[in-house]
């Protein structure tokens, strides 16, 4: 029974993710005061992509790339408790399992894109991996004080440990929270740090050779990715939520990143990495020091 429950769960999250992407396009449209597509547009896009007759593939690894990407994000989803709603497997793994599974996605996509032997794709991947040097560190340093404070590495227990509104981790550790926000912007690949899929510069980066169903898979991967990344952030900083409040929380966080995405221009890659080693790094170190002093 749990297998069916697992499929349903995954489908639900994918659809919600696609709706988030539709909402994002709607928000950016309204910011540019135009109507923008209907919210369910991404679902249509995915269906259209899967309906494509035949798409070009450059080898087994090329076609397996999106598959591994989706595997990575799906596996991470399973280990991530959504609010205090406990999914199947969060007991068998903690923060580090999630962090390392998060990397499997981009690595799989990178392998596939690498196989497509297109220089745009490779430049895109080089940027994606270098960006990780920037935001991954800040994200980890932002979440570290929370885990250290509650003395556990399992996300579920961190959620339980945080009480009602006034003693959320976001309130107790404001500096780390802000640093986490900076990191989230990079993690999601939103506009100031949208160097990986920069359509104008490197023709949508790694996705340059992906068409049809591969692109469909990558869209789903991106959709689930939004939920997982924002969900992780919400779990750590916003404490125990019912499933509804959890999705509301993720949407609010997602809404914030989309707004920033709609108005910000794009960094050059070395500027982006250097930016992360500037203010956000300082903030996260302050966060850690705060834990030492305050605890």
């Amino acid at each position: 029974m749990s297998i069916l429950y697992f499929f349903l769960y995954l489908l639900l999250v994918t659809i919600i993710g696609l709706l988030y992407m539709g909402a994002a396009r709607k928000i950016t449209a309204h910011i540019q005061n135009r109507y923008g597509p209907p919210v369910y547009q991404p679902i249509l896009d995915v269906l259209k992509l899967f309906a494509k007759k035949d798409t070009a593939s450059h080898g087994i690894m090329h076609s397996l790339g999106p598959v591994i990407a989706y595997t990575g994000i799906a596996a991470t989803l399973l280990f991530l408790p959504l609010g205090n709603h406990t999914p199947l497997l969060h007991f068998n793994g903690d923060l580090f399992v999630v962090l390392y599974l998060l990397v499997v996605g981009p690595l799989g996509m990178a392998l596939g894109a690498g196989e497509s032997a297109n220089s745009n794709a490779t430049i895109g991947i080089a940027r994606a991996l270098s960006m990780m040097l920037g935001y991954e560190i800040i994200f980890f340093m932002a979440t570290l004080p929370v885990f250290y404070h509650y003395g556990t590495a399992s996300i579920y227990r961190v959620i339980q440990a945080q009480g009602a509104f006034p003693d959320w981790a976001a309130i107790l550790f404001p500096i780390s929270f802000i640093a986490g926000l900076f990191a989230l912007q990079g993690l999601m690949g939103e506009k100031p740090f949208e160097l990986v899929v920069a359509p104008h510069e490197i023709a949508s980066g790694p996705m340059v050779e992906y068409g049809g169903k591969y692109l469909g898979l990558l869209q789903i991967w991106h959709a689930v990715g939004i939920i997982v990344e924002t969900g992780l952030f919400v779990d750590i900083f916003f404490g125990p939520q019912s499933i509804l409040w959890f999705f509301a929380g993720t949407f609010i966080v997602f809404f914030a990143t989309v707004i920033v995405n709609a108005v910000m221009p794009r960094f050059r890659i070395e500027q982006a990495v250097r930016f992360y080693w500037g203010l956000p790094l300082l903030l996260s170190i302050l966060g850690i020091l705060q834990v030492y002093i305050w605890r």
């Binding site: 923008g36 597509p37 209907p38 949508s204 996705m207 050779e209």
Partner: peptide, 13 residues
């Protein structure tokens, strides 16, 4: 875009 038409960078997509 309200008709679901967005410009794409490569012929593949």
């Amino acid at each position: 875009e309200r008709f679901g038409i967005i410009p794409m960078a490569t012929p593949r997509q």
